[in-house]
Simulated assay, not measured.
Amino acid sequence: MEHLDKEEQKIMDLLPKGMDRPRPLKELVKLTGWSSRKVRATIYRLITIHHKAIGAIYQRPGNGYFIITNDTERNIALAPLTSQIMEMTKRAQIISNTDLESED
Rank of each mutant, 00 (worst) to 15 (best):
H51K: 10
K30H: 06
L31P: 00
A77F: 04
S96W: 13
Y44D: 11
F66G: 04
R91K: 13
W34E: 12
A77Y: 05
R60Q: 10
E87L: 13
G64Y: 02
T82K: 15
L14R: 03
Q59A: 15
S83M: 10
I95F: 04
L15I: 12
V39C: 05
P22M: 10
S35L: 01
H3G: 12
V29P: 01
L78E: 14
T42Q: 05
T98W: 00
K52V: 15
D71Q: 08
I94V: 14
Q9H: 05
G55A: 06
R37K: 11
R23L: 06
H3N: 12
T98G: 02
W34L: 09
L14Q: 04
D13I: 03
P80N: 09
Q59N: 14
K6T: 11
H50A: 10
P80L: 10
I43W: 02
M88W: 02
Q93L: 13
T48H: 14
T32W: 03
Q9F: 02
R21P: 00
T89L: 07
L31R: 08
A77V: 08
R45C: 03
K17F: 01
Y65L: 04
P24C: 05
I68S: 06
I57S: 14
A92D: 10
E87R: 14
A53N: 05
T82E: 11
L25H: 01
I43A: 05
K17W: 00
R91D: 06
I49E: 15
